[in-house]
Design a protein around this nucleic acid. Sequence first.
DNA 1: TCTGGGGTCCTAGGACCC
DNA 2: TCTGGGGTCCTAGGACCC
Length: 415
Amino acid sequence: MKKTIPKRPRVILHMDGDAFFVGVEIAKNPKLLGLPVVTGEERGIVTALSYEAKAMGITRGFPIFKLKKEFPKVLILPGDYKSYEEYSTKMFDIVRRYADEVEEYSIDECFAELTGLDKPLKMSYREIAERIKLEINNELKLSISIGLGPTKCLSKVASKWEKPDGLTVIEIPSIKDFLSKTPIEKIWGIGRRTSEFLKLWKINTAGEFADKSLPWIKGNLSKPYQVIWYELNGVSILKVDPERKTTYSSVQKTRTFYPPTNDSVFLLSQISKHLEEACRKVRHYNLVPKKISFFLKSQEFRYYSFEVVLEAPTNTPEGLIVLARKYFNNIYRKNTFYRATGVSLYELVPEEVKQGDLFGGMITTNKFETIHKQIDSLEKKFGKRVIHLASSHNAKKIKTKGSDSEDLNRDLLFL
DNA sequence: TCTGGGGTCCTAGGACCC
DNA sequence: TCTGGGGTCCTAGGACCC
């Protein structure tokens, strides 16, 4: 089989924070170093855990109440997302000292295009990675792992290879070696369903997957898996995209509650609250949705959703709440019990774009927009959630895990 | 693991048209 | 009318990720 191998292989860096949320907590408070620490108190489940906690057998998703009982020595912290964002930004800025093209993939992961930078920087690729690692360690007191590879997929394999504090380089001649030792389900983009399917064909390792012929892949799997196949064979298809992550194409808010309920007043107030929060977020990014959808999730984990194309896109919740009310009965059944509600705003476009309406007509400025701009700045001053719509108020009465009841007292209602 | 929350991308198939 | 063929657009929902 013929494989096209680029004349000069790419070198892509993947950087991955080690137990990132906990890492930041330790950076903030070095006394925690060496102790079993977890975050996620506010959510009721473990979201991140130190390697010491991992060694005790604790896993992500472990219930906090159980943790307190079974592992009383473990330190449980609430998530401090503001700090995580700050450290994340600083971490990526350090990578940008060396590379121009950096793709922020998630709060604790990024890719960087290093191809050709060895000459101007007068360093080997490995040395570049070492420098980045050292500066993040020294300046931020954070531990990270780095992988270098000729494709994004392979750099992901490399960064996972040795954790924590790892630095692994995969060069083209050693690809086979690495992949034969990598279980197929560990590959980025191959999840439970696909690995189950592949195992029926006796494909258990990434190496066995990469050794399949392209026609076989094309005949049995969809396009994204063909991309993975190329990438694992050292042919770079996925580009490092610095533009990604700088904006959103959709925003959603969902919440699960217990016990499941068929109380339509409660469900609608949840949806109302979600619309408020989603709109707040979208306004913050100066975006406007062209479509929205609501969903109810039943006790049996079935989704019932309804989509609305907005005639006049808006990022204020009032009109959307009216729509939600209007269409609620399309998805709601009296005899069904629901465990979650949610809303999505999508086809988000920059705020200016909606002004230009096709027929040259004036788009009347929604009177609520002015009000919300003022509320947004009020909230900036006094902290979040000072003001709520009356329609969301029922949602606040229900205790969700870890919610603070003093919120109620600060409610300032209108409408 | 009886299953949280917030995202992205792809595809099958229906609706509609000629 | 026991019924062709092909194209485009859209949506619901699957699969995956952190």
